[in-house]
Design a protein around this nucleic acid. Structure first.
Lengths: 202, 202
DNA sequence: TAGATACGCTACGATACCGTAGCGTTTCAT
DNA sequence: ATGAAACGCTACGGTATCGTAGCGTATCTA
């Protein structure tokens, strides 16, 4: 019959989805503090009792809601020159933190992660996956000798990605493609291998 | 008599200070959501009614508490080479966001600023002052032709400061002086003026 | 010293949530 | 069709905050 597990009752799937959806919405609109069981019940049209039937605590539910928000990003494999790859990645990230549906929840996510170790781990894992392509691109470039050998990949990631988060979270300056391009250019200029020659001024 | 205004009653000054102090502590320990008037009353040993005598709303009080947290930073004027200046500034910032008394409140501050426009303005003003020395240093370097002319100062600030915030808020990697040095070095490498020697390959 | 002012304390009424229980109804699986 | 499972609904008791009022006490100013 059921391919895996014990076949989920469609009613359960339905309520779970509605609850998670409503929780995520509240999270986005009002932040972690604005998430209340009764508010979720109202919005999701699922009875409060049903929520308690599926989740032991509010924090578990919030956790799962954050997870559902983070999940959708399967990440795409970038291609092209290193410059193109980086621009693509940072561009996507920029849009992700400014205009995506979950963008308004970012600060709430970070704040929550600051206090909840499990949530922190969730974020960490998410980033690990999300940044992996960037890492790959950098490592590959190093192997191709397009990037200095002595560059610390983690620091490099920070130098590339940091400005994006900085603008979104701290300075709140606009995040245009021009800014992204400038960030990438600065990085590339700084990380070209010790001039083997001007052999390719490009 | 009193030099300015109508001479503040010492009792008022006393309670105000105690209240702000307690509020700031709660803010640091439990975040914005953990701040409750009654909690403040308990901790500050000031009666709840007195709190309402001085502040109309909880949000105003939280605002003032954040302000009191941000105020202490008068910022120091850095000196030395550009490299030294930048390292000093970023080093201070690193310590500020990791081990300062108010470091634990940063994420709460950002999250709160994401929702409260007045708080956002407060943060903005604070940053403006705090970053001014960095800006000055960069501009001066540009004038001395130690820095490319075509570098956007704001982007440059982001490239320098972004990685710090990124590590503190997002990746949670350690913020050592070595990292700071690497960030500064990468920036300097990327922003040296067009090699007068290679006579501008591009 | 005397009047004004600020404070502490207690007690409220009003909400907003929490988490649970009971019970009838709908919907699933077989 | 029928029993099991999930759901909706109402109603609680309990807790935490809010914001206000009233009143007596301590403290400051002049």
């Amino acid at each position: 019959m059921a391919p895996d597990e014990t076949a989920v009752d469609p009613r359960v799937a339905r309520s779970r989805a509605a609850i998670l959806q409503a929780t995520a919405e509240l999270l986005i609109e009002q932040g972690s503090a604005g998430v209340t069981i009764e508010g979720i019940a109202d919005r999701s049209k699922v009875a409060k009792t049903t929520i308690y039937r599926h989740w032991k605590s509010r924090s578990q539910l919030v956790f799962d809601a954050f997870e559902s928000l983070l999940r959708p990003g399967p990440a795409v494999p970038p291609s092209g020159t290193l410059r193109t790859q980086l621009q693509t990645i940072l561009s996507q990230l920029s849009r992700g933190v400014t205009v995506s549906e979950w963008a308004p929840a970012i600060s709430a996510l970070i704040e929550a992660g600051d206090r909840d170790p499990e949530l922190r781990q969730l974020i960490h894992d998410f980033l690990l996956v999300r940044m992996e392509h960037g890492r790959d691109a950098l490592r590959a470039a190093q192997r191709r000798a397009e990037l200095r050998e002595d560059i610390d990949i983690d620091v490099a990631i920070g130098v590339l990605v940091g400005p994006i988060f900085y603008r979104r979270l701290v300075s709140r300056e606009p995040l245009t493609d021009a800014v992204v391009a400038e960030v990438v250019d600065q990085f590339l200029r700084s990380s070209a291998p010790v001039q083997t020659a001007e052999l390719a001024p490009l």
